[in-house]
């Protein structure tokens, strides 16, 4: 059951992500991006990370995407108002994108996703009480260290 939900959700995520890229109208792109973020939040929920689910929706879908939509609506881009790009810039974009793909594939090909021991794994770790303890207990010093470095 959980497996099927996962595959269905992943399919939807990828579908909406592709629609973001292929939509002609930027407003539709933003709306599809919102749907993509919802699907990603669904993945968090499948992992029993309720807090991340809520925060992802509040911050990304609720605030940042509203600002995106806001700006794009103000600009009011139309298909006919879109400037024609030259072949050279299109070619450059394709090459740059391809390079990024190669780098990502090379980096992620041998990555060790890690594993867990079902006997000792705490399935409640994603709930807000436990997450808070981990954040401000175990990782508190590391967070502070990172902050002092940056």
């Amino acid at each position: 059951m959980a497996d099927k939900t996962f595959y269905f959700l992943t399919f939807l995520t990828l579908l909406f992500a592709l629609l973001v890229v292929f939509s002609k109208n930027p407003v539709y792109s933003v709306l599809y991006l919102i749907l993509t973020i919802f699907c990603l939040s669904g993945h968090y929920l499948l992992l029993n990370a309720q807090f991340l689910f809520a925060v992802n929706i509040i911050v990304y879908a609720g605030a940042i995407m509203v600002l995106f939509l806001f700006v794009i609506m103000f600009l009011n881009l139309r298909e006919d108002a879109e400037p024609q790009k030259s072949t050279a810039s299109k070619l450059a974009a394709v090459v740059a994108g391809g390079m990024l793909l190669v780098v990502m594939v090379a980096a992620l090909r041998r990555v060790d996703a890690g594993s867990y021991n079902p006997a000792t794994y705490n399935s409640q770790i994603g709930l807000v009480e436990n997450l808070g303890k981990v954040f401000l207990g175990t990782f508190c010093c590391r967070l502070n260290w990172l902050r002092s470095c940056s």
Binding site: F53, A54, G62
Partner: peptide, 12 residues
């Protein structure tokens, strides 16, 4: 256990 955040998310 995220009740309030849920309300807040829906409102946003």
């Amino acid at each position: 256990n995220i009740g309030l955040l849920y309300v807040f998310g829906v409102v946003s």
